[in-house]
Amino acid sequence: MWSFKLEAKNSLRTKKFWLTIVLISLVYVIAFREIKDNLKATTNLQGVLTFSLIGYILASAFLFIGLYVLILGATSINGDLENGTVQISLSKPVNRIQYLIGKFLGQFVSIIVALLFATLLSLVITRYYSISITVKIISDLTIANALTLLSMLQLLALGLLISTFIRSQNTAISVVLILFLVTGLVAPQIVDSMAKDRAREEFHIKTPEDAMKMPVEERNKYHQRQIELQKEYHLRYLFYIPQVLLEDIVIDMQRTTFIKGKIRTEYIRAWDAIKNNPLRVSLLVGLTLVYLIMAVFRFVRMDLR
């Protein structure tokens, strides 16, 4: 597809992309130190390492790749209108749907490169701590990356949709920054505190001291219920935020059980975590398609001037 080739070249050359790569590298500088501490406190080296690395891929994705992707999408059509390249492209024998899908897939290439870079850094860390790179680690990282990619695609499609509504790139960037702040920080905080309130209500906890006074078994049950409610509320109120859906799937990779007052953390395979969350995975895929179809629908009816 003609516009795919053009966009892939374009997105890999932007300053936004290279800034994202630098920021991901910084996240992994922090990761080096923190993973060292995590490994000291465990005997399940591979499990902890895999989970920590996936955590860092997600952190990179949420903090930087996500913002990069949203901005990339939100400034694509309006950007092309501002610099006149959309008129040049569509004056050639290229139809609008091909153009938009090609652009989407071209931008997708830069996300893959950013994620591969994050994965490569993860593997470097694995080797640094002399932990052998097993098939399990590779497959778990690949699956986690694929999931991250799905959530990033959703953000890209949303950005693309925004770019068909907002004509100015600068306004689109402002909207996206606000959106990122609200959906990445404010909304999850509010929803999580709602879940905590509900858990307190169920366990008749009025003050923090009440929780401390509870027997260990009961307290563990309370914490577990809090996590359950958070996930439930995420699905109910934050189903449109891909980062939240992804986080809930990944959290399932770490299964914490409380047996006779002792906490036991078990790491399950990434594929099993996906199988446990079919609705969340469907939402990741489904909403991406919805946004993309809406963007196409809007773009094919837009006056391009």
């Binding site: 053009l6 070249k9 374009n10 050359r13 610099n83 006149g84 390249t85 008129q87 040049i88 004056s91 050639k92 024998p93 139809n95």
Partner: peptide
């Protein structure tokens, strides 16, 4: 699409792709 194969268009004040 068919006629676009036979048309050349030069827009007003377009910037083209700077990286090419």
């Amino acid at each position: 699409i068919k006629v676009k194969y036979m048309i050349g268009y030069m827009p007003e004040d377009a910037t083209l792709w700077d990286f090419l």
